[in-house]
Amino acid sequence: MSSFLTSSFMSNIFGGLAQGVIYSLVALSLVIIWQSTHVLNFAQGAMAMFATYVGMTQIDRGLSYWWCVILSVVVGMAFGGITERVLIRPLYGKPEINPIVVMVGFLGVIEAVTTAIWTSTSRNIAAPFSQIYFKAGGKLVLLSPFIIFQIILAVVIMMLVAALFRFTRLGLQLRASALAPEVARLLGVRVNRMLTIGWMLSAGVGSIAAVILASGSFGLFPTNMDGVFVAGFIAAAVGGLDSPVGAIAGGLIIGLTEQFVLAYWSPSVAPLGGMIVLVAVLMIRPHGIFTRSVSRRV
């Protein structure tokens, strides 16, 4: 058993899952916004990074790690809600490219402002979990207490989001607003409020991804979410932009693919693995693996 755990195959599985859950969270946050407002939020990663700066730098002021995590998520959610109200709401009903362009511009603004406030130097956020790999039978297992925490936290967040959408009144109203906004309005659902809440939720999920990334060996710097955002975006497209389950699966697929390409080919071509998966999936299922192939009636 232990020789199996320490095999390079299993090590790559652990490494791929650890990276994959971050992609899954980013993909999930993109899907939540896409489903409700049909906006591809290119600033998703940068918004989460900014919230993480605001929250996690409070460690310098003596706040504990966990309070900083909570603060990051709260700031992220507020940022998401305000962004929807101020930048996105005036653009509903206009050409779909408009909010995309606005959010690409916003990405640049956020990264510039972050650099101006905190400089571009990478900082390490000390998580209360060891990042030293376990050993079994004298051999290294590519799994550390931090990676276990990272995977558990991501899974818990995904389950909470799923439960919220599936079992709560709020979740039902969020789904109805996304699926059939006019019908939802006729039933008394405050659809505009649901769109704001959708953005808040999405930004909260994104912030968790950014906090995990910043707490690991990657560190926190103004562009640290850029690569992760691209991978998360690919994951969402692979899974299907309409499918939260697809987002999560897509993230894991991309994480594992990158890890195996990295291990068996070369680290420098790891992102290529994700691209190949994306192209292959889109050729076979243009709307992603988990999107129902029946197109919706308009």
């Binding site: 039902l172 109805a176 039933l187």
Partner: peptide, 12 residues
């Protein structure tokens, strides 16, 4: 949505 979810939505 399911039948029950549609009804629930109507009552919310």
């Amino acid at each position: 949505l399911t039948v029950e979810e549609n009804l629930r939505l109507g009552a919310l």
